[in-house]
Write a protein that binds this DNA or RNA. Structure first.
Lengths: 130, 130, 130, 130
DNA sequence: GTGGTCTAGACCACA
DNA sequence: GTGGTCTAGACCACG
């Protein structure tokens, strides 16, 4: 994972979203421990406080829980919670985009066209190159 | 129009987006003047500085221009600019939502389903457009 | 208000509890603004970050909300929320004490005696002195 | 007994409180030996260091004493000490709850009501005691 | 080893 | 003026 410091999205949010994605995708399973705050802070080259804030958020949401002397572990409900949150977030972004487009009187067809282009663009993965 | 002070979207951006929409939709036509800063500030119950910042942004984008002794008037290119801006913004929102959904390993089909629901929920207002 | 740095209760918790009490008691009414983070930090001689964390907690709980450019204001539901929280917290403390006492096989009457003494002691207010 | 790893109460304290209760209730009598550190650690599925810390605390309090080659045995004064400790702890919890309730301007009557509910909810186990 | 709290101080966005 | 974020670094409690 890599942090983007040129966006307005706070770093702790990027981290939280990243973990949500990994939990929702089954990379971190219930009962498993997340990377320790310090380890992740070193890996991402950010301050431990920043990682902690991200983990705190996931804790409040019930996605993970703190096990004393161990660390943060994914809860049973974590996968469901993560999936829901990401779906809701995605839906919120879509709605926001639709409102913007509609305010310009862009037709439904054109809106779908914009969405389709976004879909195919995001589907591109790097394939190598020089 | 109404301002939402409880969202994370800055007020000045809400105003700017609103004006972009009206220009793109042909409510404000090239050569026509926008509501004066003071008038709009009073109507929206916001600080004039905030309206100023919104208008400044539209000015930088070339959507409107300041005509001395008159006020901000829509430029010739304004409609096109407004449309572009909103389309790009919509596209950005879509991309952001897609990234979130993909991070959770949500299938393309499901993503389209989420989008479709957002489309129908937002409701159709007028026909026309592109 | 005064901060007690000799307890295990975090400073931000003390601050949050203090505000909860003031809201529940009607000192801060719905729609009214809390002391600004910086002002309170200076008054209590703590770091602004610490006050912010307290306010954040109250925000998550729905007791206050952030109004852009203004500050944190008490919500409509704030009074009810604060009262509920404090009542629940009090009840939790009572339950904890009861469990401890019962584990020692202390009779119900004796437990009530302990409680009564705590009640009368807490009722004492300073009355002057040299 | 069962350890709760999700509470803010340290495990070593849960263990110490448990032993205090058993001594105060006469389950462990003066001169009798406590379960060995290793045995209790295995039974509770915790680190032996944690049990050690609990026993140390009881030792400092004079509730038990380490007899070389034997283990921790309850002292003569142990019952009295245990009872005192638990009573003080209970009293502390009560005071804390009362402070919280008073800060919300909850009437003395209501506070007693909250306490009564906590009492009845906690249920009566055995008779006897003081 | 794990996380929790706090400080000092900086920089930014918004109204 | 308001709050939001982040860093560097310290100290503590727990297991």
């Amino acid at each position: 994972m890599s942090i983007n410091t040129n966006t307005s999205v706070p770093i702790y949010q990027q981290i939280a979203d990243h973990v949500r994605g990994r939990v929702a995708a089954g990379i971190h399973r219930p009962g498993e421990m997340l990377p320790s705050i310090r380890a992740l802070a070193i890996e991402l080259v950010v301050n431990p406080n920043t990682v902690q804030r991200a983990y705190d958020e996931l804790d409040w949401e019930g996605l993970v829980e703190l096990r004393r002397g161990v660390g943060f572990v994914v809860t049973e409900q974590g996968v469901r919670v993560a999936r829901n949150q990401l779906e809701q977030a995605a839906r919120g972004s879509f709605s926001q985009g639709i409102v913007l487009a509609r305010s310009a009187n862009i037709s439904e067809e054109s809106i779908r066209g914009i969405f389709d282009r976004a879909m195919s663009d995001s589907g591109v993965r790097e394939g190598g190159g020089t």
